[in-house]
Design a protein around this nucleic acid. Structure first.
Length: 586
RNA sequence: UGGGGUGUCGCCAAGUGGUAAGGCACAAGGUUUUGAUCCUUGCAUGCGUUGGUUCGAAUCCAGCCACCCCAGCCA
């Protein structure tokens, strides 16, 4: 997790060129045609630093950065850090790194809502001065009562009729730290009878005597999301403020706040010339949901805190940090985000689509190698004990430009236990007693003898190689099976981690599930020691993604392992990103 | 039962009044020294539903049904 350039697949590789129409692209085309924003397109990705980014965020990141790039515009990274209680610098750092890893660069410096706190304070004075906001003495509990319900309108706060002067004094006293948390709040003066509950005098500022990760102890009052987000967008000269559907009800408030402020003062903060300045507009799209996946930040944090997983970067997590350690590439994620599309309908994407994108990219770019997960010794009887040839094999079967590697073949090799059967099922294409199979990239061998231990377990196979089959088909017969193998004496011992989905139900966050712990997949992680990998994988530096032929895609993990460039590594870990597609059901 | 949304193939998703794109999944063939990849073919007389307007409707109108979001001083 230290070097973002260390991944074997280029993070800057452009996404697929198949640009699909969607309602946001159409909206922007219309805005450009009408010159609503003078042709400017300026978006932003506004995470709250209260957790790690997950694949749902990736959709938003790709959308915001791509839509800006397509239109020669810009995209800002802005931390929406108005709630210091839940936020931390650790999350800020991780988020920045994840976005770079995904392959995007934000415009200018990283922004923070907290760096607008002075401006936000000046604007609240302006709003109070226009009798559009007031200081409310209701406690949070009372405020809830006064707000009414979904079907009943609310009642006015007793503080609603205070004079502007009184409000201004109370505001200053709030800021000075004279009151306890919750004693007062600043509220917009809109309409307590509005059918939209967000418009029933929403809270704009609250008292929180707590240190902030960016502004330390400068403030004890903090602006709320609704008040901060629209103004931050306006200050940054954002044109298209994209967010998810649950904020649709907030759009009237977003607009109300900006429209009740002097546009000239907003413009002044933006630094944009008058001719280019237009208020931003919010547009909502459906968030990404994936089946068999839990996306709620609160739940993900709980899994980390309770050690249900090893951390935010556990390879089973849907976090960007986790998927990275799993071996998922940035290009695969970007292609996935593009291929799921953008719409306003609630949708749950099938995990299979993500898996397809991962395989698609890895098949094209991952170097091939052989690794035997469950070794079974094969003695090739017509090779001498000191037999050694170095076979040259392609790093990629369909792309010679990716080069070749040396694979040593010796008297004894390992194949996978699953590739030999004494009693083969119908259709079995692997090795049987008396049968033949091709050692991938090497000779065809025939099994002559099965050696068992006292328990009757197969411990060794004695085989004969057909010396006339190197690089050519055997004479007069067909050998269908191909099996991967590794030299017994020259192979390297490694540990492999196999991952499966974390949950065994499609929707672990559905109302039918009382506790996600009840639906955890107990077999989501399988660790296999003493796997044997061909030596070349340890010498090909900078490459971390491999396809172990016939097994799947694996990622050399830097965690819990020695430096991969160590000339004599002893503890090597390969995480299985994903298996190969398997159309042979057994 | 207030307000705001959404309903097009098992899953995403184009379509914006002229007669249902594409991808995933699935199925059947072909190639193959990875049971992978790749290639070929198939896969909605139908667009939540019922009516209406129209020469013509997934697209326009009306009603109905289903599902999602909102009563944090969270975002």
């Amino acid at each position: 997790m230290t070097n973002s350039n260390n991944d074997s697949v280029d993070a800057k590789q452009p996404p697929k060129k198949t640009v699909v129409s969607n309602f946001i692209r159409q909206l922007i085309s219309r805005d450009n045609a009408s010159a609503k924003y003078g042709g400017r397109v300026h978006t932003r990705f506004p995470p709250e630093p209260n957790g790690y980014l997950h694949i749902g965020h990736a959709k938003s990141i790709c959308l915001n950065f791509s839509i800006a790039a397509e239109n020669n515009g810009f995209c800002n990274l802005r931390f929406d850090d108005t709630n210091p209680e839940k936020e931390s610098q650790e999350y800020v750092d991780a988020i920045k790194e994840n976005i770079n890893w995904l392959g995007f660069s934000w415009q200018g410096d990283v922004r923070y809502s907290s760096s607008y706190f002075d401006a936000l304070y000046a604007f609240i004075i302006q709003l109070i001065g226009k009798d559009k906001a007031y200081v409310c003495s209701l406690s949070p509990e009372q405020a809830r009562e006064y707000r009414g319900s979904l079907t009943d309108s609310g009642r006015n706060s007793p503080s609603r009729d205070a004079t502007i002067a009184e409000n201004l004094i109370l505001l200053e006293r709030m800021r000075a730290g004279e009151f306890e948390n919750g004693a007062y709040s600043v509220r917009a003066k809109i309409d307590m009878a509005s059918p939209n509950i967000n418009m029933r005098d929403p809270v704009l500022y609250r008292i929180r005597h707590i240190e902030h990760h960016q502004t330390a102890n400068k403030w004890c009052i903090y602006p709320t999301y609704d008040y901060t987000h629209c103004i931050s967008d306006a200050i940054e000269g954002i044109t298209h403020s994209l967010c998810t559907m649950e904020f649709e009800d907030h759009r009237p408030l977003y607009n109300w706040i900006l429209e009740n402020l002097e546009i000239s003062s907003l413009r002044a903060e933006s630094g944009l010339p008058d001719s280019e300045y237009v208020l931003p507009g919010q547009t909502e799209f459906a968030k990404l949901k994936l089946n068999y996946t839990m996306m709620g930040k609160r739940n993900l944090k709980n899994m980390v805190d309770t050690h249900a997983v090893s951390g935010w970067d556990d390879p089973r997590m849907p976090t960007l940090a986790g998927m990275r350690r799993r071996g998922v590439t940035p290009a695969a994620l970007r292609n996935f985000c593009e291929s799921v599309g953008v719409s306003r309908s609630e949708s749950v994407v099938d995990l299979g689509m993500l898996e397809y994108c991962i395989r698609e990219d890895l098949d094209k770019n991952a170097w091939r190698a052989m690794c035997v997960l469950r070794p079974l010794k094969v003695v090739i009887s017509n090779f001498s004990a000191d037999y050694l040839i170095k076979l040259l094999m392609s790093n990629h079967p369909k792309d010679e430009s990716q080069g070749k590697r040396e694979v040593p073949l010796t008297h004894e090799v390992y194949i996978d236990r699953a590739d030999f059967e004494e009693m083969p099922p119908p259709g079995f294409k692997r090795l049987t007693l008396g049968g033949e199979v091709r050692l991938r990239g090497a000779y065809v061998i025939r099994c002559d003898e099965v050696i068992k231990n006292d328990q009757g377990e197969i411990i060794e196979l004695v085989c004969t190689a057909d010396l006339d089959t190197l690089g050519k088909k055997p004479e007069g017969r067909k050998v269908k099976g191909v099996v991967h193998w590794v030299s017994a004496s020259l192979g390297k011992s490694v540990t492999v981690r196999l991952y499966d989905r974390l949950f065994n139900v499609e929707n672990p966050e559905s109302k039918d599930v009382e506790d996600y712990r009840d639906v955890l997949n107990p077999n989501s992680l399988e660790i296999i020691d003493n796997c044997v990998v061909e030596p070349s994988v340890l010498t090909r530096d900078a490459k971390l993604n491999f396809q172990f032929e016939r097994e799947g895609y694996f990622y050399l993990d830097s965690k819990d392992s020695k430096d991969p460039k160590d000339p004599a590594p002893t503890d090597l870990y390969f995480n299985r990103t994903i298996s190969l597609r398997d159309s042979w059901s057994s």
